[in-house]
């Protein structure tokens, strides 16, 4: 049994000045995530998924328990993680290319090499943009792109510094069904190429089952993990799979847990 890459040990978090009055946004989360695996967390709204994300990124410190990444406790933002949000959050004054390059201007060791190695970085960014179907759009500004294209650029930005861990906070939540499925495949391909860890928080059960190795179902108030489901569907997975009985069965099974937590 290998050492897990990401570990949650009895993690609870409460907001406000008196964290110990028993009202937790998330409560007693225990997770062991293997290196290179893709996990998804699903749950009804208000189940503390965003809190979970903030703790994992190190933007917030948990009130109880601890989170270990690569056997080291998370004390602040990790430079080897990349993140994409529900909104593309591209900077409107930067071109698509410059938006994608942004993390390299911040994160070491790229930061200190940035002016000298700029051409190498640009090359890398263009390749990445090309791989998500944005080749030729690098000079465009975000507002000249469609929502789906912006989200692709946002994925590129999350991956440009070759993070070991990709955090996705409902990344495709605001997209239409077709664009969404297209982006599932793009994410699937990026992940199977590079095998970084992915933690994806989502409302969409099909999305979770299609992409993830393990799906966790969270309950609401307090947020707790009530079910863990290993998705043993063979890879590579194609969209046809989502219409097969085996797939639908898993989705339905997960759905009953959501229903149960809703009451």
């Amino acid at each position: 049994m290998s050492v897990p890459f990401i570990e949650f040990e009895h993690v609870s978090h409460a907001y406000g000045e008196h964290p110990n009055n028993g009202v937790f946004a998330i409560e007693d989360i225990n997770l062991k995530i293997d290196k290179g695996s893709f996990i998804a967390i699903v749950g009804p709204s208000g189940c503390g998924k965003s809190t979970f994300m903030k703790l994992t990124t190190g933007l917030q410190k948990s009130t109880q328990g601890r989170i270990l990444v690569d056997s080291k406790p998370v004390l602040g933002p990790l430079s080897f993680s990349g993140m994409a949000f529900q909104a593309p959050t591209l900077l409107p004054w930067r071109t698509t290319l410059d938006n994608v390059l942004l993390p390299l201007e911040i994160v070491e060791p790229y930061r200190s090499q940035f002016s000298r190695q700029k051409n190498v970085f640009i090359e890398r960014a263009l390749k990445l943009l090309d791989s998500v179907g944005l080749g030729g759009y690098e000079k465009k500004f975000p507002w000249q792109l469609s929502g789906g294209m912006q989200q692709r650029a946002s994925l590129c930005r999350a991956l440009i510094h070759q993070p070991k861990m990709l955090l996705l906070d409902e990344p495709f939540g605001a997209l239409d069904a077709f664009t969404k499925e297209e982006l599932w495949n793009i994410l699937r391909d990026l992940w199977s190429d590079q095998h970084f860890n992915v933690i994806m928080v989502t409302h969409d059960l099909r999305e979770a089952v299609y992409l993830a190795d393990v799906v966790y179902v969270m309950s609401k108030g307090p947020g707790r993990i009530v079910h863990q489901r290993n998705i043993d569907l063979p890879r590579p997975r194609e969209l046809n799979l989502t219409y097969e009985p085996a797939f639908t069965r898993i989705v339905q099974e997960l759905r009953t847990y959501i229903g149960a937590v809703r009451g």
């Binding site: 990124t57 190190g58 933007l59 602040g76 933002p77 990790l78 430079s79 993680s81 993140m83 949000f85 909104a87 959050t89 900077l91 942004l102 993390p103 201007e105 911040i106 994160v107 930005r157 510094h161 955090l167």
Partner: peptide
Amino acid sequence: EPELEDVLRVLGASRKDILFK
């Protein structure tokens, strides 16, 4: 927008980085 700030904060950017970028 705090969302834009978060983009940089998750990368471990300093306050100065956020101000300038």
